[in-house]
Amino acid sequence: MKIRFLIPLAVFLVMTAFLAIGLKLDPREVPSPLIGKEAPKFSLTDVMDASKAMSTYDLKGDAVLVNVWASWCVSCRQEHPILIDLAKRGEVTIYGINYKDTREEAQKWLRSYGNPYHSSAFDPNGHTGIDWGVYGVPETFVLDKQGVIRHKHTGPLTQAVIEDELLPIIRKLRGEP
């Protein structure tokens, strides 16, 4: 058989490979340049208590999750039971950044659906969100003991993401100095 007749087949296979990869890629999943860098500094207040300060310093010491959320965010509502469940297991401390919200709405939200967060920083104008490269709440960051961002998950958490993606990283980070 002549090699020429194989060319259309080769072209077809290459295109199929490209399209198959393209199908699996999620254009929403933008790699964060912040991974491997120290978490961007903020000094805000606790969403539950305006007189209580909260800063990046509070996030250091142990591998933790930082979850960016808002009461107006529909997907946050969706992932919320999973966070509550994770908090109950006590395997990892969860901090929150309350993004572009009002204090009243945020407090109401936590009261009615439960509060999985050790504490949440109140970021009403979204400056801290921008510093952290947030573009679509909910977003979840994994920080190591030194407060360096080691992983980021964009979009609502699922049980599978927690078990297969976040907890293995947390356990690994616990083993580091």
Binding site: V30, P31, S32, P33, L34, P40, D131, W132, G133
Partner: peptide, 8 residues
């Protein structure tokens, strides 16, 4: 912008 959101 790129420090926060990357070259994307």
């Amino acid at each position: 912008l790129t420090d926060r959101y990357g070259d994307f």
